[in-house]
C-alpha cells in the first residue's frame, strides 16, 4: 500500500488519481467495491426481474445499508482481533446468546430494557475476557480457544432454550426500524461504531499498541508493551460488538432463537469481510474502513442476487466464489506491488 511509485515525468490522470487515493490511505478494496457496484447496476439493467433500476430506488439503496448493519458491527470487532493477529470464532454463538437473552429477559416489558442491555454487555465483556485469557495466558491457539468457547455457549444456550423465547418490547424495535429524518437509526449506529473503531485504532495510543502486537508480539513485548492486556482488550471489544449485533438482530426479529447467530454465519462472514477489506490474517495491518467496504460488497451482492432472481443455493456458490476471487485479487495485487 505504501509502495513508492517511480517518479514519472508526466503522470497520467489515472496515475494521479491513484496517487491521490494512496496519499489519503484509501484501502484498495474500495476499487473492488466500485467495480462490483457498477457490475450490479449493469446486471440489474439487463437481467433484472422488474423494470426498475435498484440504483434509482431509494428503499433498496437504504436496504443495502440496513443489511450491512448486523454484519458490519461485529466485523468492526473482528477487525480489532485480527489486527492483533488473533481470530474470534465465538461471535456467532455470542450473537445467539444475546438475541435469546434479550427477548427472554425483556419479556415484552419496556421497563426491563435498560438493565437487560446492561446485563448482556457484561456477559459480552466476560466472554471477551475469557477468550483473551485463554489465548494470552494459557497460550491456546485463538482458533481453538474461541471455537471451544463458542461450543460451550452453544451448548448452554441449546440446553436452556429450544425455540423463540419471549419478545422485545415495541420501543426496543426502534433500534432496527426507527429513522431520524431519512436516515435509519441502525445505519447511524453502524456508522458511529465504524467511526469509533477508526478513532481507537488510528488516533489512540491503544490502537498503535494493537498494531504493534499484531505485527510482532515478541518485538512488542521486548519494547515494553503488556501484550497480554492489549490483545485481551481487543477480544473484549470484539465480544462487545457481537453483543451489539445480537441486540440489533433481536430488535429486527422481535424475538431471539438459538440459531439466529449461527444461521447468519456471522463468524465466518465477519472474518471474510475483514480479510476482503485488507486486514491480513497474520495481523499488524488493515483497518475498519476496509472492513466496511467488505461488508458493503456482501450486501450489494445480496441485493443484486435478489434483483436478478437467483436461487438461494446458487447464491451460496457465487458468494463462496466471490470471497475467494476478491481476496485473491487483493493478495495477488499486493504481491505484485511488493515486486
Amino acid at each position: 500500500m505504501t509502495a513508492i511509485s517511480p517518479p514519472a515525468a508526466q503522470p497520467s490522470a489515472v496515475g494521479r488519481a491513484r496517487q491521490w487515493l494512496r496519499d489519503r490511505n484509501v484501502p484498495p478494496v474500495y476499487g473492488i467495491l466500485v467495480i462490483i457496484f457498477i457490475v450490479a447496476i449493469l446486471l440489474d439493467a439487463f437481467f433484472g426481474i422488474d423494470d426498475e433500476l435498484f440504483i434509482l430506488n431509494q428503499t433498496i439503496l437504504t436496504n443495502i445499508l440496513v443489511r450491512s448493519v448486523a454484519l458490519g458491527i461485529v466485523a468492526v470487532g473482528q477487525t480489532f482481533v485480527m489486527v492483533g493477529a488473533s481470530i474470534d470464532l465465538s461471535v456467532a454463538y455470542l450473537i445467539s446468546v444475546t438475541a435469546v437473552g434479550a427477548s427472554y429477559l425483556m419479556a415484552g416489558d419496556p421497563n426491563r430494557v435498560w438493565w437487560t442491555v446492561l446485563v448482556l454487555f457484561v456477559v459480552g465483556i466476560v466472554v471477551g475476557l475469557i477468550n483473551g485469557t485463554l489465548i494470552t495466558r494459557l497460550r491456546i491457539n485463538s482458533l481453538i480457544a474461541t471455537l471451544g468457547v463458542g461450543l460451550i455457549l452453544r451448548g448452554l444456550l441449546n440446553a436452556t432454550f429450544e425455540n423463540f423465547a419471549g419478545s422485545v418490547p415495541a420501543s426496543f424495535q426502534t433500534f432496527a426500524y426507527g429513522t431520524i429524518g431519512p436516515l435509519p437509526i441502525s445505519v447511524l449506529v453502524l456508522f458511529l461504531v465504524v467511526l469509533a473503531g477508526w478513532f481507537v485504532l488510528r488516533r489512540m495510543r491503544y490502537g498503535s499498541h494493537l498494531y504493534a502486537v499484531g505485527g510482532s508480539e515478541e518485538v512488542a513485548r521486548l519494547s515494553g508493551l503488556r501484550t497480554e492486556r492489549v490483545l485481551t482488550m481487543a477480544h473484549v471489544i470484539c465480544s462487545v460488538t457481537a453483543v451489539l449485533t445480537g441486540l440489533f438482530v433481536v430488535s429486527r426479529l422481535r424475538a431471539g432463537a438459538p440459531w439466529v447467530g449461527t444461521d447468519g454465519l456471522y463468524d465466518l462472514e465477519s472474518i471474510a469481510a475483514t480479510v476482503i477489506g485488507g486486514t491480513a490474517l497474520s495481523g499488524g495491518k488493515g483497518g475498519v474502513w476496509g472492513t466496511l467496504a467488505g461488508v458493503l460488497i456482501f450486501s450489494i451482492l445480496d441485493t443484486m442476487f435478489n434483483q436478478i432472481g437467483i436461487d438461494a443455493y446458487m447464491k451460496q456458490i457465487l458468494r463462496g466464489a466471490i470471497i475467494i476471487l476478491a481476496v485473491g485479487f487483493y493478495t495477488f495485487r499486493s504481491k505484485a506491488e511488493q515486486g
Binding site: 471451544g148 468457547v149 461450543l151 460451550i152 452453544r154 451448548g155 448452554l156 444456550l157 441449546n158 440446553a159
Partner: peptide, 8 residues
C-alpha cells in the same frame, strides 16, 4: 446440547 459444552 450439553455435550457440545463439555466438548468445548
Amino acid at each position: 446440547p450439553l455435550r457440545d459444552a463439555v466438548q468445548g
